[in-house]
Design a protein around this nucleic acid. Sequence first.
DNA 1: CTTATTAATGTTATATTATTACACAATGTT
DNA 2: AACATTGTGTAATAATATAACATTAATAAG
Lengths: 132, 132
Amino acid sequence: MLKQETLSKNQQIVLDYIEKVNEPIKAYSILHNVQKKGIKAPLQVYRALDKLVEIGKIHKIESRNAFVACKNSSCQLSKATAFSICESCEEVSEISDNKLSKYLKSFQDKAGMKFKKYNLEFFGLCKKCSIK
Amino acid sequence: MLKQETLSKNQQIVLDYIEKVNEPIKAYSILHNVQKKGIKAPLQVYRALDKLVEIGKIHKIESRNAFVACKNSSCQLSKATAFSICESCEEVSEISDNKLSKYLKSFQDKAGMKFKKYNLEFFGLCKKCSIK
DNA sequence: CTTATTAATGTTATATTATTACACAATGTT
DNA sequence: AACATTGTGTAATAATATAACATTAATAAG
Ligand SMILES: [Zn+2]
Ligand SMILES: [Zn+2]
Ligand SMILES: [Zn+2]
Ligand SMILES: [Zn+2]
């Protein structure tokens, strides 16, 4: 059983909002949307984001400077993440594929290096945008 | 044979500098170091970077907002990139592994989505930092 | 060669993303 | 209680990146 972190007030406010919007969202957009909850400054958002990333509740989409809720309780607390990103509509989905994560984990091992995590981002067109 | 792009003046200046430093470097650091060559504004650097990324001469390390020269003429013009990043000394190396790129390419195909590229970043400790 | 088109440049201003610094409060441990 | 750890509030600022506009250079047709 994974350790269940107790979130602080600001962390919970930020997580609630990210889970609600259910798509990648940027820090300053979060800020604007949680100001009614009493969060006033960027740093309050960034501190909450840091913690939420650390405990694996959310991930950062590095190529987009955006944050998204984890959809995959088995992604080993943010240490092994993979996403597909549509370059047309910017839709992002988290990839949950056991074979892929096993392959990448074993790749790390073979390389003889002490990797703790990885992040993989695929770019292209989602199904909807492929049709157009 | 791959198409050989002719670089513009600014593109060449920026590429020369990135190839010379031979490690990931940030846009504003590039700017400071090429001002003696006549490049005065951030935008001149960013425009050159955009083009160099597009033609695969350099890659962006997304998690670090830094740029590095491509060491791997076979990485298919920036469409399939993989890096290992040391979280201690920030050393970055480009991974060139045929099996890995084939695996990820086939993964894309199986997913039935039209992906054009991917970027993979492994994080951990390099050999030097593992010993310490 | 002339015209049209595209790509690159120069410059200023501004937008966006993220961190430093410092004072203080809440929480958990011994 | 004393201490350590974590979280908060606030202001200022740093770092990263783009918008807008005028101009020039390079390519490609006709
Ligand atoms: Zn996840
Ligand atoms: Zn799409
Ligand atoms: Zn490369
Ligand atoms: Zn290292």
